[in-house]
Write a protein that binds this DNA or RNA. Structure first.
Lengths: 292, 292
DNA sequence: GGCAATGCCTGACTAAAGTCAGCTATGTGG
DNA sequence: CCACATAGCTGACTTTAGTCAGGCATTGCC
């Protein structure tokens, strides 16, 4: 704990201050950060508000000032929220892109200024340790919560889940042939659906069905590529088990496909034991159970 | 480099923002930071100015506001700068100490909030990686510069140097019996004196004498306990060699005491070879030379 | 003892950051 | 088609942060 505290102080204060200094070039920091966040690809106003955590009025004013400086233009959104005429999008002008490139360059300068005084060995150790810290901090920022399975973020996860297994199963995946699962099955009291988010982006999900008779059943456990290996799957699994245990279930079961090696490994190391086939799931090759 | 950049973004933005939020409890951040920095032991105004990097007038005003809130008192310094009637010292009142304790507690909360979602193994890896990052970042923040040997920070290093060798040499250390070295010997053009600082605190030093005839000579190489093992000594040594090489010297020499094991190891691994005794230094047991 | 330097303080500013209430245009669900 | 929500904008503020020029007492140095 002491080392976390020291880290927070030393690193965020010192590196943070440096970062700000490199970022703001004459321009107020708020504007510089905003310009950076818009990026060459442009960004919707609402997204910027979320990422930077700014007040709507304040953000609007900042956008206005960047626009006055000729760095950005603001127009109707053409991206994902295309149709909605209320949503607006900020895009860099040529001057804005040039300025953004300077910021990008300075970001490199900052990295260089940290690495230069060190020996080769120290550099390698520092980058390795930074990578580790970053990954683990991201892991610790993942929040898991119960949501209705109809939640748009849950839907997005489920779509990604289906896309992935369709790609990984030997014979593809046709939802019509698999055991169906209606939203109600994952809604209290029949069950629950958990969503894992990182900085409010959905990065994983999992559902549990609380069957009237017999063990509870875990379904639709999925973790986004970007956060694999961070223990997110295991955390979701644990919370699903916890959910069932709290409601009096003595065991949980699940089925899985032989191609999902990491998942199978995780089940085994989480205390699941392989059991005989207990359902007729078309795509399953292994069946597991864990006593709670 | 990319991992340094990603680290800077993720860590300073996310943890930095959290840190600020935890720190400022209703109070402006500047005041909270200042209160924290004063600490239960109190602090001199000049020290606070240095540590927080604030303008003298601004700091004065912040102190005034904390005083008005009954959290601190400001009086004549009683610490190291005791005699000087101009120096003033801030001390926490009972209310201030209570408030400080709350900040301390919140600092723990933040650390806890980072560690809680992780598994035991991840926690260990995170704290280890944080420790590594912190040390290496500190190392990279060490600045080495040429200063007159009369500089108060250089003097402080030399005092620490003498104190340390007096303690480590078998038969103590009496400056009168050692080869004397006047300030002029470390002042251009006769030589140079380097000072290493970390956040403007002196943490190491070293001098080189540019003898009229024969190799240059390195003396008074010292590194503070707190930053040992960070490669600071090796950097100072390298810069001293560089200084001599630039001025046409083909070799540098130095003598050392048999008890200074780390130093001897560093000389050897930096390319120094042991040579026969070349001076009458009372406290030396080994003599080294490196061809530049 | 006089004079420059130092350490801290005050007054008078400015700019940046952030808040809040209300406004307009667009979209949505009955 | 209406009521109501949502996305973003504007005006009118307040607070925080920070700068700069001078001022006063104390110290250090010839």
């Amino acid at each position: 704990m002491a080392s976390v505290r020291r880290f927070n102080r030393t690193v965020t204060q010192r590196v943070g201050a440096l970062d700000d200094e490199y970022m703001a070039r004459g321009r107020p920091l708020g504007q510089a950060r905003l310009l950076w966040e818009i990026g060459p690809a442009g960004a919707e106003v609402a997204a910027l508000r979320g990422r930077l955590g700014l007040d709507s009025g304040y953000l609007s004013r900042l956008l206005r000032s960047l626009e006055a400086d000729g760095l950005i233009t603001i127009g109707p959104a053409i991206g994902p929220a295309g149709g909605d005429g209320r949503v607006r999008e900020a895009r860099l002008t040529a001057a804005g892109r040039a300025e953004w490139a300077v910021l990008d360059e300075r970001s490199d300068d900052l990295a260089r200024s940290i690495l230069t005084p060190l020996s080769d060995g120290q550099r390698d150790r520092l980058t390795a340790a930074m990578h580790e810290v970053e990954r683990l901090l991201l892991a610790s920022m993942v929040v898991i919560e119960v949501v209705p399975p109809g939640d748009p973020r849950a839907r997005a996860c489920l779509r990604a889940y289906v896309r992935e297994i369709a790609h990984r199963f030997d014979d593809g995946f046709d939802p019509a042939l698999s055991t169906p699962a209606a939203d109600e099955a994952f809604t209290a009291p029949a069950g629950a659906f958990l969503l894992a988010t990182l900085a409010s982006e959905p990065v994983g999900c999992g559902g549990v069905k609380l069957h009237r008779h017999g063990p509870a059943e875990i379904k639709r456990l999925w973790v986004a590529e970007a956060v694999r290996g961070m223990g997110v799957g295991r955390r979701i699994l644990g919370e699903l088990e916890h959910h069932a245990a709290e409601r009096g279930y003595a065991a949980v079961r699940l089925d899985t496909n032989r191609n999902l090696h990491e998942a199978i490994r995780m089940y085994r190391s989480s205390g699941y034991r392989e059991i005989p086939q207990y359902n007729a799931e078309r795509y399953a090759h292994h069946w597991f159970e864990k006593t709670l």
